[in-house]
C-alpha cells in the first residue's frame, strides 16, 4: 500500500483573523469591581482614622522622633540583636547535643528545651530579675575546698542582664528545635558521603549539612526575629527602658495613651518591614543552588 499524500485544504478568507496571536482579552468586569470595592472600604477606613481626633495624630507626629522614644527604640533593637545572636549560637549547640548519640548530651538538651520553651517568657524574665530572692550570693567554689570568687546577686542581675539571660535562653530553646528540624531535613547520604571522604564531625556539620539546612532554617528564624522584637516589650515589666516602656513613661505623664501606643506600633511595623526585606535576601542567597541554569556563577569556588 502506498501512502496517499494529504493535500492541505484551501485557506478560507477568515483564517487570517483566527491567528490566536491577535486575540483580545475580555474585559475583567468581576475583578475590576472587586478592586473598587476593596479600595473604597480600605480608603474609607483610613479616612475615618485620619480625621478622628481621638487618634491624636499631631501628638503621634510630635513624639515619633522624641529622644526618649528613640532611646527606647535603640534599647529594643540592641536587646533583640544580642538575645537573638546568643539564642542562635546556644540553640545550635543545644540542637547538636539533642541529636547526639550520647544519651547524656541528648537528655540534657531535651531537658533544656522542655523547660525554657515550656515556661512562659514573662515568668522567666521576672524569675531572672528576682534571682537574688532565691540565691542572695553567687559563688565559684571548689567542692570541699576554698571559695574562688563570690558576687552579690543583686550586683550581677540588673534589668539588662536579666532581660538578656531571660530572652536568650528562651530563644535558644526555640531555635534549637528550628535548627534540629533543618539538620534533619538534609539527606542522610550527604553526611555518609562526607564521612566516607574522611571528614570530621565538626567539618561535616559546618561545610556540608548546615549550609544545606539553612534553606529550612532561615524562614522560621525570620519569624523568630520578628516575634523577638515584640517579645522585648515584655522587659518593660522588669523596668528595662525599651520602646514600649519609653512610650508608657511618656503617656503616664501626658495621659495621651492611644497616640503614644501608635508611635510604638508604627516603629515596630517599620522595623519588621525592613526585616522582611532582609529575610527575602537571605533566602535567595541560600536558594541559589536550586535556581535554573541562568544563574551559574562565573567565579571560582
Amino acid at each position: 500500500m502506498t501512502a496517499v499524500p494529504i493535500a492541505a485544504p484551501a485557506s478560507l478568507p477568515a483564517d487570517a483573523l483566527r491567528d490566536v496571536r491577535k486575540a483580545h482579552a475580555p474585559f475583567p468586569m468581576g475583578r475590576v469591581v472587586a478592586w473598587i470595592v476593596a479600595g473604597l472600604i480600605l480608603g474609607g477606613f483610613v479616612y475615618i482614622c485620619a480625621v478622628n481626633p481621638n487618634f491624636g495624630w499631631p501628638v503621634v507626629g510630635q513624639y515619633f522622633f522624641d529622644p526618649t522614644v528613640l532611646k527606647g527604640l535603640s534599647v529594643s533593637l540592641g536587646l533583640t540583636a544580642v538575645a537573638m545572636v546568643l539564642g542562635i549560637v546556644l540553640g545550635l549547640l543545644v540542637a547538636v547535643a539533642r541529636m547526639s548519640k550520647d544519651r547524656l548530651s541528648s537528655s540534657l538538651a531535651g531537658l533544656f528545651i522542655w523547660f525554657f520553651r515550656g515556661a512562659p517568657l514573662l515568668v522567666q524574665l521576672i524569675f531572672w530579675y528576682n534571682l537574688s530572692v532565691l540565691f542572695p550570693k553567687i559563688s565559684i567554689v571548689i567542692p570541699f575546698g576554698p571559695t574562688l570568687a563570690s558576687w552579690d546577686t543583686n550586683h550581677l542581675i540588673t534589668p539588662l542582664t536579666a532581660a538578656i539571660i531571660g530572652l536568650s535562653l528562651n530563644e535558644a530553646a526555640l531555635m534549637a528545635e528550628i535548627i534540629r528540624g533543618g539538620l534533619i531535613s538534609v539527606d542522610r547520604g550527604q553526611t555518609e558521603t562526607a564521612q566516607a571522604f574522611g571528614m570530621t564531625r565538626g567539618r561535616i556539620l559546618r561545610r556540608i549539612v548546615l549550609p544545606q539546612a539553612m534553606k529550612a532554617i532561615v524562614p522560621p528564624t525570620g519569624n523568630q526575629l520578628i516575634s523577638m522584637i515584640k517579645a522585648t516589650s515584655l522587659v518593660s515589666v522588669i523596668a528595662m527602658a525599651d520602646l514600649l516602656y519609653s512610650v508608657q513613661s511618656i503617656y503616664n505623664r501626658t495621659f495621651e495613651v492611644i497616640p503614644m501606643l501608635l508611635v510604638a506600633v508604627f516603629w515596630y511595623l517599620l522595623i519588621t518591614s525592613v526585616l522582611n526585606v532582609v529575610q527575602g535576601a537571605i533566602e535567595r542567597h541560600y536558594g541559589r543552588s536550586e535556581r535554573a541554569t541562568a544563574t551559574i556563577r562565573k567565579d571560582n569556588p
Binding site: 558521603t193 544545606q212 543552588s289
Partner: peptide
C-alpha cells in the same frame, strides 16, 4: 567511594 545516589553536595558547584 562512589554511591548509587551520587550524593553530590547540593549546595556546591561541580568544581
Amino acid at each position: 567511594m562512589v554511591f548509587q545516589q551520587f550524593n553530590l553536595y547540593g549546595h556546591m558547584t561541580v568544581l
